[in-house]
């Protein structure tokens, strides 16, 4: 009799859990996690390209020690930080974004400096590295957008009635978004 009651309870909980959207919440949360790991992959890819780029630039330039160092430093800072999709908070994501943004701006400074070295610009290896780097920046922005979409999908779902009741019960929390890059708000500075 006890077994029968237990079976009954299991059946009831399976049907009600799937109808209250628990399974969908799990699916959507997993989609966010996947999207986040794609974002991290692309940042990692950029970090992997940097040593090669720095070495190539070093061979052609003489006075750009400072710019090169800032790229290397930003990279080493960025590779130390990892962020888990499961316990992501808005503050943590902001910090992560700021550190990755530093790498991005250091890189763009470096690429701006290379404009002064025609030989470097003519180097095929450098050209291809640059193409890869640009492609990676594109991929980062695509994956960030995908992440924001997955997050929005998840957030909207768990906040809707009646899912919000169950979401609170099972510990599904709202996840933060990527915000527009801080550096993009300012117009680029021109120095002569």
């Amino acid at each position: 009799m006890k077994n029968l009651m237990r079976l009954f309870f299991v059946i009831i909980s399976i049907t009600t859990l799937s109808s209250c959207g628990y399974n969908s919440m799990v699916e959507k949360e997993e989609a966010v996690n996947t999207a986040w790991s794609n974002v991290e992959n692309q940042y990692q890819r950029r970090a992997d390209l940097i040593p090669n780029l720095v070495n190539t630039v070093k061979g052609y330039t003489t006075h750009e020690q400072e710019t090169l160092e800032s790229v290397v430093n930003a990279r080493s800072k960025a590779t130390q930080i990892t962020l888990n999709a499961e316990n992501m908070t808005p503050e943590k994501l902001k910090e992560y974004q700021a550190i990755q943004g530093e790498v991005g701006s250091a890189l763009s400074r470096l690429l701006a400096v290379t404009e002064n070295y025609p030989e470097l610009k003519a180097n095929q290896n450098f050209q291809e590295l640059q193409a890869q780097l640009e492609g990676t920046e594109n991929r980062i922005s695509v994956e960030r957008r995908n992440f924001n979409q997955a997050t929005q999908d998840y957030n909207t779902y768990i906040r809707k009635f009646p899912n919000n009741l169950f979401a609170g019960m099972f510990g599904f929390e709202k996840k933060p978004y990527f915000e527009a890059e801080a550096g993009n708000e300012k117009a680029p500075e021109v120095k002569f």
Binding site: Q124, Q127, E128, L129, A131, Q132, E134, G135
Partner: peptide, 11 residues
């Protein structure tokens, strides 16, 4: 078809 090859074909 990696990015570098795309760029090489273009240039």
């Amino acid at each position: 078809l990696p990015d570098a090859i795309c760029r090489r074909i273009q240039t």
